Computed example of a mutant assay.
Amino acid sequence: MGLTASIYGGGPFYPGPDSALPTISRSGFTTLVCWAIHVRPNGDLAYNDTLIISNGQYVGDPSWGEALEKVKEGGSINRILFSIGGWETNDFYHIMNLLNTQGDGPSSILYRNFETLRHVIPAIDGIDYDDEGNYNINTITRFSRMLATIGFEEITFCPYTNSPFWINCLQCLEESNPGLVTGFNLQCYAGGAYNIGRVKKDWIDPLQAAMGKSFDAAGFIDPGLWCKHGDGCTQGMDPKQIQSQFTKWKKDKITGGFIWLYDDFEKCGNDPEAYSNAILSGLS
C-alpha cells in the first residue's frame, strides 16, 4: 500500500463560486475529508451551518455529488471521507439519543438520512468520527454497523486522546465487521499536540498489543498537523517543519498523515501542493 496524505476542510469543500474542489483535485493530496457533518437532535444533517438532509430528503446544493465525483477523476484524490463531530459539538450525543429512541433500522431517521447521503453523494468512501466528548462504545459500534448496512465501505476514527476507548471500539467492530475501520486519523495539534512525541508509545504500541503481531499498527495510524494559521498566520507549521516531523515518524513506520485545515490554506495563502508534498516526502 502506498503513502497517503489527507486534507481536512470545511466550507471550501462545498460547491459555490469560491469552491476549492477543482483546486484540491490537483493538489497532491490523496484523501479529501469534508468536515464536518453535524447531526441535529431531530436527525437532520447539516454541513457546518448548512442544512443538507432533512426527513430523508436531500436539500443541499444539488451539484455537490457531481462535483465530488469530478474531484476523483484524473487528479491525486482517490478517497473521500465525510467527518462527523468536532470539539464542543453534541453530534454523538444526538446520535446516541436517536439510536436509543428510534433504533438503527430502515425506518429510523438516522438510517434514512444517512441512506440519502449515500445515495445522493456516492463518491463518499467512508465516514470519519471526530467524537471528542461522548465516548460511548455502544453508540460508536451500533452506528458503525448501521452505516455498513447502508453501504458505507469504511469508517475512520479521528481521536486526540483516550486511546484505550478507540482501540476497544476497533476490537468490537473487528469481531462483527472485520475491515470496516480502516485507520485512526490522530490529532497532533491543539488539544492533541502532546501526541507529537508520543505516537508510538501511546497509540502504535497499545494498538499492536491489542490487535496481535500480524496487525500493521503503525500503518493504521495517520498523524495530523496544523498548517500555518491564526492571527498573522504565525501559529502552526510550515511545509518544511511538517516534512521534518514526518521524517521522524517514518522511523516508527508511519505510512500516512493529514493536514488540518484547508480553510487556513486560503486565509494564510498556504500552498496545498507544498503541504501534501511535505507529508509524502517526509515519509518517502
Results as ranks from 00 to 15, higher is better:
Gly2Ala: 11
Thr4Met: 00
Ser6Gly: 06
Tyr8Ile: 10
Gly9Phe: 02
Ser19Asn: 05
Pro22Cys: 03
Ile24Gln: 11
Ile24Tyr: 01
Ser27Met: 04
Val33Gly: 00
Val39Trp: 02
Asp44Tyr: 01
Leu45Ala: 11
Thr50Asn: 10
Gln57Arg: 15
Trp64Val: 12
Glu66Tyr: 09
Leu68Cys: 07
Glu69Ala: 12
Lys72Ser: 09
Gly74Asn: 08
Ile77Asn: 01
Arg79Gln: 06
Arg79Phe: 09
Phe82Asp: 01
Gly85Tyr: 12
Gly86Met: 02
Phe92Ala: 01
His94Glu: 11
Ile95Leu: 05
Met96Ser: 15
Pro106Met: 03
Pro122Asn: 09
Ala123Ser: 14
Ile124Ala: 02
Gly126Ala: 06
Tyr129Ile: 11
Asp131Met: 08
Tyr135Gly: 03
Asn138Gln: 15
Ile140His: 15
Ile140Gln: 05
Leu147Cys: 04
Ile150Phe: 05
Gly151Lys: 09
Phe152Pro: 07
Phe157Asp: 01
Thr161Trp: 10
Ser163Thr: 13
Cys169Lys: 03
Cys172Ser: 15
Cys172Asp: 12
Leu173Asn: 06
Gly183Asn: 05
Cys188Gln: 06
Ala193Pro: 04
Ala193Glu: 12
Tyr194Phe: 08
Ile196Gly: 00
Gly197Arg: 13
Lys200Ala: 13
Ile204Ala: 06
Gln208Trp: 03
Gln208Cys: 06
Met211Pro: 13
Met211Trp: 03
Gly212Cys: 11
Ser214Glu: 14
Phe215Lys: 09
Ala217Tyr: 15
His229Lys: 08
Asp231Trp: 13
Gln235His: 05
Gln235Lys: 13
Met237His: 15
Pro239Asp: 04
Lys240Arg: 09
Gln243Val: 05
Ser244Cys: 01
Gln245Leu: 07
Phe246Asn: 03
Phe246Gly: 07
Ile254Pro: 01
Thr255Ser: 10
Thr255Tyr: 03
Ile259Met: 07
Phe265Ile: 09
Phe265Tyr: 13
Phe265Glu: 04
Lys267Ser: 00
Ser276Leu: 03
Ser276Val: 08
Asn277Val: 04
Asn277Gly: 07
